[in-house]
């Protein structure tokens, strides 16, 4: 068996990706900064940084703190707004043979709907609804932690767009399967999980939090066991495709998520340590498949 015999195709919310590897929103921009490091054509999809209806300035600095095996961020979804995104980033990404997943953010349901509607007639493939950013005070996290609100925002966004809809779930809940079931009832065609965990660090010399926002989203290899457990739990109770993420940095990490039930795998914080991380993950998946004589990822998906 060699690389050409492998069938890496996966279907996410009705869209076929040539392989399961995508990027976690906010760790890859719109791919522009990575084109000098990797061939963007190699990726199954690019999931872009969150886009809102109008430009968002984001949170004050410091926005970054390293932690053991991970990091905290409190960027606060700084972005130039959906109109700039449509004008600049969609034409850029369309030069490449990869699917485009647009992560959308909002503070209110009408704001989410406005972004979804504006993207509806553009040449993108999927929308990923971010109802779980821990760094935005209004809306954001509340939508992701209350099943009723999660269902409602999903239903309203779904009504405003023709694009297939993935909902990105927050891990900062007591039972993630309740939220998963709620957004599927609201019409979600797929799920992404997990978003960042909420964490903090304190500078003991200055006697102050390191992040200006006090708390931030915890990501990186350190959170992988939590992410894997949640993908496993959700995959057991839903039938829509899942994009798994949280600490994926190698092919072995990705295989673990696939065995737990993920169809797609997203590389996030690893992009900051290694700009070639997505390619390394893809190559690692292929090597595992060859070594274990796996022709299609269907053979191992959800086997746990």
């Amino acid at each position: 068996m060699n690389k050409d015999d492998l069938d890496l195709r996966v279907k996410i919310a009705g869209v076929e990706l040539k392989n399961p590897v995508t990027t976690a929103s906010g760790t890859f921009g719109s791919g522009r900064e990575f084109k000098e490091f990797i061939d963007l054509n190699a990726l199954g999809a690019v999931t872009v940084k969150g886009v809102s209806s109008v430009p968002w300035k984001g949170n004050p600095a410091p926005r970054i703190a390293e932690t053991y095996g991970g990091m905290l961020n409190s960027v606060g979804l700084q972005n130039p707004g959906v109109e700039e995104f449509i004008k600049n980033d969609i034409p850029f990404l369309r030069q490449y043979d990869t699917k485009i997943i647009v992560n959308i953010a909002g503070r209110t349901i009408p704001e989410y709907c406005d972004v979804a509607e504006k993207l509806s007639n553009t040449d993108i493939d999927l929308i990923e609804l971010n109802i779980s950013c821990p760094n935005v005070k209004e809306g954001g996290v509340a939508f992701g932690t209350d099943p009723k609100m999660a269902e409602e925002v999903t239903r309203e966004v779904k009504r405003h767009t023709k694009k297939p809809l993935i909902v990105k779930l927050s891990p900062n809940v007591t039972d993630i399967t309740n939220i998963a079931k709620a957004v599927i009832k609201g019409g979600a065609d797929g799920l992404s999980l997990i978003n960042t965990l909420i964490g903090m660090r304190i500078d003991i010399n200055r006697r102050k939090p390191i992040l200006a926002n006090v708390v931030g989203g915890f990501s990186g290899p350190a959170i992988k066991p939590v992410a894997l457990r949640m993908v496993y739990q959700v995959a057991k109770v839903v039938s829509v495709p899942i994009i798994g993420m949280g600490g994926i940095a190698t092919g072995e990490d990705a295989i673990e998520f696939i065995m737990a039930g993920a169809s797609g795998v997203a590389v996030g914080t690893a992009n900051f340590r290694n700009p070639r991380a997505t390619i390394d993950v893809l190559n690692g998946i292929k090597e595992y498949m060859i070594k274990n004589k796996i022709k299609s990822l269907k053979e191992i998906r959800g086997i746990i």
Partner: peptide, 28 residues
């Protein structure tokens, strides 16, 4: 200088307030 994650312009972590050209507003 500011706390950075990636160093290549992706994480949008290391920001400072810079005035717009016409000085009426600013961006990170």
């Amino acid at each position: 200088e500011e706390r950075m994650a990636c160093g290549i312009g992706v994480c949008v972590g290391c920001v400072c307030k810079i005035k717009d050209k016409n000085q009426s507003d600013w961006q990170y």
